[in-house]
Amino acid sequence: MATYFTKDHEWVRVDGDIATVGISDYAQSQLGDVVYVELPEVGKQLAKGDEAAVVESVKAASEVFAPISGVVEGINGGLVDQPAKINEAPESEGWFLKLIIADKGELAGLMDETAYKAFLETL
């Protein structure tokens, strides 16, 4: 499974037509302790760049954007009661949502892990 990253620190893991979306370890470390998460409704149509979820730390609220277009196929409902999962395992158990990919061509505009690591070095 290929994993892609955005400059806004979301990650996308592609398995066939389904993309799992979360925030990167760098993103969670910048946020600090996550205390609240708001997930989209299953079935919601998201265009690339739309607000897909909201994540709040003690300090501040941040939006999570849809890295690619698609329809929300599933959400990680367990995060609502255990938002700390996002800090503990941001790139695995702390996933946010799954999308039915609308256009695989959009993946070409994202970074692979090597490119994302190089991008983090520039911050």
């Binding site: 806004d8 620190h9 979301e10 925030i23 993103a27 910048q30 946020l31 994540v55 300090k59 501040a60 609220a61 941040s62 939006e63 999570v64 954007f65």
Partner: peptide, 8 residues
Amino acid sequence: MAHASEAD
């Protein structure tokens, strides 16, 4: 992901 500004 976009941060709301940290005030100052």
